[in-house]
Design a protein around this nucleic acid. Structure first.
Lengths: 251, 251
DNA sequence: CGTACCTTTGACGGCTGTCAAAGGAAGTGG
DNA sequence: CCACTTCCTTTGACAGCCGTCAAAGGTACG
């Protein structure tokens, strides 16, 4: 199996190079592959926590239902992302998770994670890095939600998503796949459909971007990045400090 | 040294019982204690990431400065909390950190964390649990910020803080220490001073709570909890699922 | 060809931010 | 012990972003 076929390998491997042992540990995790339909559930809030999921292909998301029927989408997950790390150390899920599109998902037990932590310091650090990246995205979104307009928030999310896609495959910024409906965009960003729609209309009027049904078309990259006040620091894959210690440990 | 004297031990030890080896590993970390003045800086955004901090006593906070001079407080940290885990796997700090009050802080190098991960699966899981709890608080605050009024958000934060304090020491709900100014409350919750002040005034008028300069007085606990729609699930220390595997691993 | 989902538009209202200024409280130096 | 400064709290007037309610027009799929 070529290394590129393993989604989790290219995810965890981006922080530093992994040993062959580490690689085979990871490949082990991906044996149990399942094809999932779009919108199918991975778990529901309240379920006992005992599995982790890795997206091989397709998009997924985690969310929380609110008392009043509203839904809040917490993260949008792409191929290679590990779903469920957030709840790993809780007894029951606080969130629910679903596929957004159809796709292929690997499922493995929590025991495997304990085995990884037990067996490989490098992989454990890579896991920590992966958790930290997901958390950083949330953090950034919170900052945007609290301090910025709907317009900036939408632009910010679109840039962020493009950068993530681009890390998986070179992706044209001027035209890329984005299967979220306006309603879901609203659920991610904490805005109403109506307002999302109005704001997208104004972005199109201003010649910045057009949100088509299943893809985004960027018209004015420069204004997009400037107006979104986008700073990609928080998506960095660098983790120099720890790499150093890791070598010490192995020596 | 009595076990109660170790802040990090009572933090990481709350998820499951630790072995003696684990305990001494942790105690090692706390050797290097520093007395810090109120408002003194632990690190600044942009600094190289190479240390972790454990609060022994006092309060601290992490924050981000915004271009326009505003500040956003990301988390409020209490004794036992580990500061810097969020940035552990990044090369440079995205946030800054300061003491809120004066207090005692243990400082240790990242190498120690790598040693812990290398040396103890149980401690690594406890660390993960600790990270997940901090993330859960952020998550909850984001949900509140996006979907609830200033009034609910303030009440929610006060309840959350009381619960955290109460885990450290039995704390009277009707009168407890809270050294945040209204301006800082605003920076935590993403509201302006003016609005914080107006909302606190209305909470006092309604006989729910009074924010004094350095402490909170709760007048109507029932309404406080109901109106805040507070659900303490996300603060749970339970992590049953993993405990099980941990035993398997050790056997 | 019908039904369900998604997008679009209009009118209206309220929560929260901005600007401005004054009143208290706490700490400092003379 | 008193003046002074600095930080924190309080209040008023006004504006705007975004939510709510309501309805119609498109698009995809069976």
């Amino acid at each position: 199996m070529p290394q590129e076929a393993s989604a989790i390998l290219s995810n965890l491997g981006r922080y530093f190079s992994l040993s062959d042992d580490d690689r085979s540990l990871l490949l082990e995790l991906e044996k149990d592959r399942h094809s999932m339909a779009g919108k199918s559930a991975l778990w529901q809030a309240g379920d006992k926590v005992d599995k982790l999921y890795v997206i091989q292909s397709g998009w997924a998301y985690t969310y929380r239902d609110k008392f009043d029927g509203q839904r809040h989408i917490i993260d949008v997950l792409l191929p290679g992302d590990i779903i469920g790390l957030r709840d790993l150390t809780f007894a029951t899920h606080k969130t629910s998770a679903r596929m957004l599109t159809r796709g292929m998902v690997s499922i493995f037990s929590h025991k495997c994670i304990v085995d990884i932590i037990d067996g490989s310091t490098a992989l454990t650090l890579a896991l920590l890095a992966s958790i930290a990246r997901q958390e950083a995205m949330l953090n950034e979104r919170m900052l945007m939600a609290i301090h910025h307009s709907a317009r900036s928030r939408i632009m910010h999310f679109i840039i962020e998503t493009h950068i993530r896609l681009n890390k998986l495959n070179p992706t044209d910024l001027h035209q890329f796949y984005l299967p979220l409906t306006q309603a879901m965009l609203g659920e991610v960003l904490g805005l109403t459909i109506v307002h999302i729609n109005r704001t997208l209309a104004s972005l199109e009027r201003d010649g910045i971007l057009i949100k088509h049904r299943h893809h985004i078309e960027i018209l004015d990259e420069q204004r997009l990045i400037v107006e979104a006040e986008f700073d990609s620091d928080y998506l960095s894959d660098e983790m120099d400090g720890l790499k150093e210690y890791l070598k010490l440990t192995k020596a």
